[in-house]
C-alpha cells in the first residue's frame, strides 16, 4: 500500500516538474517537447494500474479482441473514406468492459493502427485521446445497479457522446497541430487550425454517431452474451 502511495505521488509530482523544467530550462519556449512529455507521463498511471492487478485470462483476451477489431475495422471499411468505426468500438468497449478496458482499447488501437498508417509524434496524442474517450465512456457503468450502462445504451446518449467525442478528438489533435507548427501555443493559430479541420471534425462526429447507432445494439448483445456464457 505504501509503495502504491509513493508511486502515485511521484506521478502527480512529475507533471508540475516537467512544466517547471520547461519554464526554467527552455525559457517557456519549447511547448512541443514539454507537451509530448506530459502526455506520455499522464498515460503511465493507467498502464500501471493495469499491470499491477491480476486479471482473468478471458477478460484479457476479450480486450485484445476488441482492440484488434477496432484496428482491423480501419481497413475493413476502407471503401468509405473518413468513415471509420474505431472510436465507436472503443466507446462500446468502455461501456461494457469498464473504463480501464476502454482506455487500453483506445490507446492500443491508436498505437497499433499507426504501425500501418505511420507512426509519428502524434501517436502519443492519439493514444491519449482515444484512451480518454474509452475511459470516460466507461465511467457511467461504474454506477450501482448498472443504471449507468443502461443510460449509455440509450440512443440519445450514444448520439450525444459519439458526436462529442469526435469534437474532443479534433480539439486535442489540433493542440498538437498548433504546437508542432509553432513550438509555442498561440490562440490565433489554434482557432485557424480548428476552422480548417472543421469538415473533418463533422465527419468524425457523424461517423461516430452512425457507427454507434449501427453497432452498439448488436455488438453489445454479443458482448453481453459472451460475458454471461463464460462468466466474465
Amino acid at each position: 500500500m505504501n509503495k502504491k502511495i509513493i508511486s502515485c505521488c511521484l506521478i502527480l509530482l512529475a507533471a508540475p516538474l516537467i512544466i517547471a523544467m520547461g519554464v526554467w530550462m527552455f525559457q517557456d519556449r519549447r511547448y512541443n517537447l514539454i507537451i509530448l512529455a506530459l502526455v506520455l507521463v499522464s498515460m503511465i498511471p493507467f498502464f500501471l494500474s493495469f499491470e499491477k492487478r491480476q486479471r482473468p485470462t478471458r477478460r484479457l483476451m476479450l480486450i485484445a479482441v476488441l482492440t484488434a477489431l477496432s484496428v482491423a475495422s480501419r481497413f475493413l471499411f476502407a471503401e468509405i473514406p473518413f468513415f471509420k468505426p474505431v472510436t465507436s468500438i472503443v466507446i462500446i468497449t468502455g461501456i461494457y468492459l469498464g473504463p480501464e478496458a476502454g482506455f487500453l482499447c483506445g490507446s492500443f488501437s491508436a498505437l497499433l493502427s499507426n504501425f500501418y498508417f505511420g507512426q509519428g509524434p502524434w501517436t502519443p496524442f492519439q493514444m491519449f485521446v482515444w484512451g480518454l474517450v474509452g475511459f470516460l465512456s466507461g465511467l457511467p457503468s461504474l454506477l450501482k445497479n448498472k443504471d449507468g450502462r443502461r443510460m449509455m445504451e440509450h440512443p440519445a446518449a450514444l448520439v450525444l457522446w459519439g458526436g462529442f467525442s469526435g469534437v474532443i478528438y479534433s480539439l486535442v489533435m489540433d493542440v498538437w497541430t498548433t504546437v508542432s507548427a509553432d513550438s509555442t501555443f498561440s490562440w490565433a493559430r489554434y482557432f485557424s487550425a480548428i476552422t480548417l479541420s472543421l469538415p473533418y471534425t463533422i465527419v468524425y462526429g457523424l461517423s461516430n454517431i452512425v457507427f454507434l447507432l449501427l453497432l452498439a445494439k448488436p455488438l453489445g448483445k454479443k458482448l453481453r452474451r459472451v460475458m454471461v456464457k463464460y462468466g466474465i
Binding site: F47, F50, E51, R55, L60, M61, I63, A64, V65, T67, A68, L69, V71, A72, F75, L76, L104, F108, L111, L112, F115
Partner: peptide, 23 residues
C-alpha cells in the same frame, strides 16, 4: 517493462491480420 501489457500488445498484433483475412 510490463509483461501483461506486452502480452496484450502481441495478441492484438496477431489478431489484426487474422481478423482481416477472416473478414
Amino acid at each position: 517493462i510490463s509483461p501483461s501489457l506486452g502480452l496484450l500488445l502481441s495478441m492484438c498484433l496477431r489478431f489484426t491480420p487474422v481478423f482481416r483475412r477472416q473478414y
